[in-house]
Design a protein around this nucleic acid. Structure first.
Lengths: 349, 349
DNA sequence: CTCCGGGGCGCAAACGTTTGCGCCTATGCA
DNA sequence: TGCATAGGCGCAAACGTTTGCGCCCCGGAG
């Protein structure tokens, strides 16, 4: 692999000049420029970003920590972040932590050594060890999607409480009274806030908020939780359910069907996240959408700001930006069943 | 940020010694070792992988090109590759190409400059320009999931023809005669091979293979394709359909439902890929599973091999490894409908 | 003719590591 | 006592860039 020196030699100029013509960083005689470019061509020279990084002390690379990018929600989040990075001229190192402190720590070390310019962290666990490790990391960092207990870092997320309320009020508007909630892991701020939104919405109008059961944010978790809900409360089973993410909502759909009930006639279902496939469940899933793209853009913007600040050693305050979620209504919460299905209202409205 | 020199100074040794104790690359007196480690601690020293990379001419980073990691199938593939990389001590740069030649080219340049050790490429398009750009890239490279026309590189993929046959023969075993196929983009080898498998299976037993329509590998594409199939062939509509990926299968499910038909009673459906959510559609989707993890491991193993070979300048043959797909049967192709639904056979068996 | 200014370019240090070579000291053996 | 040997360590070059400083030359003004 040829280096800048080879180019310089071939073009009959100094490496300084080569560097300057490639970076357009000072004026060079057109004739010289041409010679250099030609030399670059014939040698197939590709500048070394690693040497450059060493010199300028910046890698134009950022690291992204997620629990598991095969979870559709995180997949879409990663995608949005990657897009923002691409637009800003940054590359993205993808790191799955599996919510495992050890694995996260390894990645934090690697990223530090690789001198990434910053970190975007979407964690799903409030494990003390994990947040401690993050706190000990000197890299510029912004949290996305959910805050982390005990970690003071800028954070961009949606208003989970509001999202929970949105979902629940929508279900109430359908006339449903017994509205259950399938929460996520209990130690997760974002999940608990959604649950809190659900509870607040119910309490606001004096409805009971006793139909709460927790899942683990997986489809199977939602399935199991919903089965439990239907079994334990056979007498006064819920007529609607708000699942704290779409995966669990899909599991819930399945459980409802297996119980011989119909969605939305017998049980209306609302999810959270608006993953792409939410429009293709059977029936299509009503859900609370997060503005993924805006979140990613905001997070990256802040991160780059922090990186600049880091260079000038100015401290930046750790703020939190709350974006607003939006309800996307689909069939799983229609007031009436679809035409192909016998119309029936399965409860007192 | 302190460097190895600072550590050396504080510990009262040479940088050579510091380097050697950190890398355990030659024996050092325990007392000296301790002094060094202590200095590392108090300074919070983190070695620079970029300086190291410059020196040793290796970054321990690989790049992965995919069309779009928010597609669940690619999300899972990326995850599997990331896992393999992590285990091997490599980091992963994620690059979404969007099947856009320009974007791919930018990434190829960036990756070359960043001196990634190798590339794993999952492309979804046989665009001539894209494959030409790939061919012009000097980096060690292995193709995963699908071969690319005009590109001679090692490739690990599943036997798409066999997969297509598997799906189709399964449907025939259910007694279905009018088996349609929703193909993917026509310029895509992998998709065409699945279609070919479908055709072969039918021809083998003398069934007609005229029910073919093409989608674009998206859920909506599958939906549209299936609608067309049901509309155009109302008289002799298919009693089964093989969709060339799960996303399209999900769209097909929706179209079938909207037409007032039932799966699998009226139309049995089989997908391809076995994405995680395939188990949570309504009804759960029968599909052809690819051994994602094995593919990822094999691809990385080959890539690392190539990287080694590159160092020793030995040429390596461009072989193709065919892994075998496996049918995962679920409700969308059960012989009998589930208990909760009236049992009925919607066609002459 | 002298002087000044500016355009075009080169020298060499520096970024933070790794590593071949070789020095020094202590030890074992004759 | 002398010598070979080995263990412990340091010197300095090299990896491929960027960039401050400064040299040289040419043209215009006085």
């Amino acid at each position: 692999m040829s280096s800048i020196k080879d180019v310089a030699r071939l073009a009959g100029v100094s490496v300084t000049t080569v560097s300057h013509v490639l970076n357009k960083t000072r004026s060079v005689l057109p004739a010289t420029q041409e010679r250099v470019l030609e030399a670059v061509q014939t040698l197939g020279y590709v500048p070394s970003a690693v040497a450059r990084s060493l010199k300028i002390n910046a890698t134009h690379t950022i690291g992204m920590l997620v629990p598991d990018n095969s979870n559709p929600y995180f997949a879409e989040l990663v995608r949005a972040v990657e897009d923002a990075c691409f637009a800003a001229g940054y590359a993205l190192l993808l790191c799955n932590t599996d919510n495992h402190a050890g694995r996260q720590q390894v990645y934090l070390d690697v990223l530090s050594q690789k001198r990434v310019d910053g970190l975007i962290v979407a964690s799903t666990s409030d494990d003390a060890l994990m947040s401690q490790h993050l706190a000990q990391t000197a890299l510029p960092m912004v949290l996305i999607d959910r805050a982390i207990a005990g970690l003071e870092r800028p954070c961009v997320q949606t208003d989970h409480v509001q999202g929970g309320m949105l979902a629940t009020q929508h279900l109430m508007a359908l006339g449903r009274k017994r509205i259950a909630c399938v929460g996520g892991p209990q130690d997760l701020q974002s999940s608990e806030q959604r649950v809190q939104g659900w509870r607040q919405a119910l309490q606001l109008v004096g409805l009971p908020s006793d139909l709460l059961v927790h899942g683990d944010f997986t489809a199977n978790g939602g399935y199991v939780a919903m089965r439990r809900l239907l079994r334990d409360r056979a007498a006064d089973r819920p007529t609607a359910v708000f699942a704290c993410n779409d995966l669990m909502a899909m599991g819930a759909l399945r459980a409802v069907h297996e119980a011989g009930l119909q969605v939305p006639r017998d049980v209306a279902v609302v999810g959270y996240d608006d993953i792409e496939l939410a429009g293709y469940t059977q029936p299509a899933l009503t859900t609370v959408a997060q503005p993924t793209q805006a979140m990613a853009e905001q997070a990256l913007a802040w991160l780059l700001e922090r990186i600049q600040a880091g260079r000038s050693a100015e401290p930046v305050a750790a703020a939190t930006q709350l974006l607003v979620p939006a309800l996307v209504t689909r069939e799983s919460s229609r007031a009436l069943a679809r035409a192909a299905v016998p119309i029936a209202i399965g409860e007192t409205l």
